[in-house]
Design a protein around this nucleic acid. Sequence first.
DNA 1: ATAGGGTTAG
Length: 598
Amino acid sequence: MQYFQTLKRSKLIIINTREAEQSCLALLQLCDVVPKLTQIQAHIAKLGLRNNPLVLTKFASTASDLKAIDYASSFLFSPDSDTHLYDAFLFNTIIRAYAQTGHAKHKALCFYKVMVKGQVLPNKFTYPFVLKACAGVGDLNLGKSVHGSVVKFGFGDDVHVRNTMVHMYCSCGGGIESARKVFDEMPNWDSVSWSAMIGGYVRVGWSSDAVELFREMQMAGVRPDEITMVSVLSACTDLGALELGKWVESYIEKEGIQKSVELCNALIDMFAKCGNVDKALKLFRGMSGRTIVSWTSVIDGLAMHGRGEEAVSLFEEMIGVGVEPDDVAFIGLLSACSHSGLVDKGKRYFSIMVEKFGRVPKIEHYGCMVDMLCRAGHVKEALEFIRRMPIQLNPIILRTLISACRAHGELKLGESITKELIRAEPMHESNYVLLSNIYAKMNHWEKKTKTREAMDKKGMKKIPGSTMIELDNEIYEFVAGDKSHKQSKEIYEMVDEMGRKMKRAGYVPTTSEVLLDIDEEDKEDALNRHSEKLAIAFALLNTPPGTPIRMVKNLRVCDDCHSATKFISKIYNREILVRDRNRFHHFKDGLCSCRDFW
DNA sequence: ATAGGGTTAG
């Protein structure tokens, strides 16, 4: 800033363009640009440099602020200016600047079009920027056409371009197979190529493939770096693979891979979401350079484990050390209050968020509040809250409300809301499941059957529930009625044994949620085939007595499995840790940490 | 002068 002051005082003695140009460039190098945008614009104008390409591009790229980029590009590429006078460098700078913005990535592609139309030849730096913009926009067809240009202009062999192409295809919906094709056709792969593909698999939820590819990377003898490991850890998190995650941690230590802040964050997230939240806390306490992501990961981890009070005090600690909470941090905090039944605290933080931190609540924040009121059984209040929301309601919030109506006996209300929702979203299978469950609770079996038939008629199926379990470095996945496992016979015998022992201990099957219209005995049988019970039987058969069992479900745990797992934890003297779609359940001695609210 | 892969979310 000192330079800026000096320059202001001496501006009269700058007499030639060269000097002015140099001074502007130097100024931009020194300035904390964003808050001074208008001053600098005025300065550029006063020095007569409003059409100076060098200064303007420097301005745009240093400021990395949308207004600055718009300002620069409007002068550089005004309709009457002749693009022939510009070279690839100028376009690259503008394209890069736009590609880095939050909401104007498409403008990068506009300028790329201007560039090609004006017959300015792209150079080897152009396509990484353009592909990054495509990735940001996420339009597969656009990406494919840029891929065509890459080949046409002869940059298809460049390693940077290839790697960014993999990234681009991974970021566009439906592009993962094309990404793999580009990846497979590379003549050689460096750590960036592998990381791009592994990270791509993780992003689309193909976590097992990501782990598999990481193994291939090791066999290919390419040394992974900290960025590769972030993606691998993210895959472990998704799979709930704690053993694998621990192995990754020791691998990082052994290989001396740099523990960047991002890598520490990934480790924290992995431990928290794979069931060891205390280890996550320990890592968090030991790390330096925490970012908002570190705080949010650990707060969210505590929230998932029902440790709401601790999550809240960490949030307070975060504010105390001067870290400004963002939208995601507030979602974590509010969901912590929700999962631990801290209704008053949740309400207070919601208003603090608005009044003290000036944040406009998003639909996710309203969703947390509705969820919180519903869990606590305040269905009417939730309804009133929704009525007063100054924002478009979404189906997710309605489904939260409907579940609460069922759980808390507001069946008529639940039925009418669900019918309305089905009219709005006729092809969403879970709406029919909800309606069917409400009819079951009302004992309206005919209507329940009709709901089921309506689903069949539309060709919809219930999303199959699945349970994953990690054993001896392998991940086993069970779906309901699964017979594919080689121990299948023993597993079903075990399930029967579990059933007999549970009944003796007082377990009553919750048959009302079975969607099929079959008799009671068959319903019990259907419940026993639930993936969670198969996975527990498998674990009981294959692990020594007393070892904890960890599982990951793709859906929310059902009433019957929840009650059964409580019995099993007592009968077989096992701690059972289940991560479902929303949170963790620690079963021990016949009780669950969620205290039956989930 | 300008290049590639990464993290938190109901």
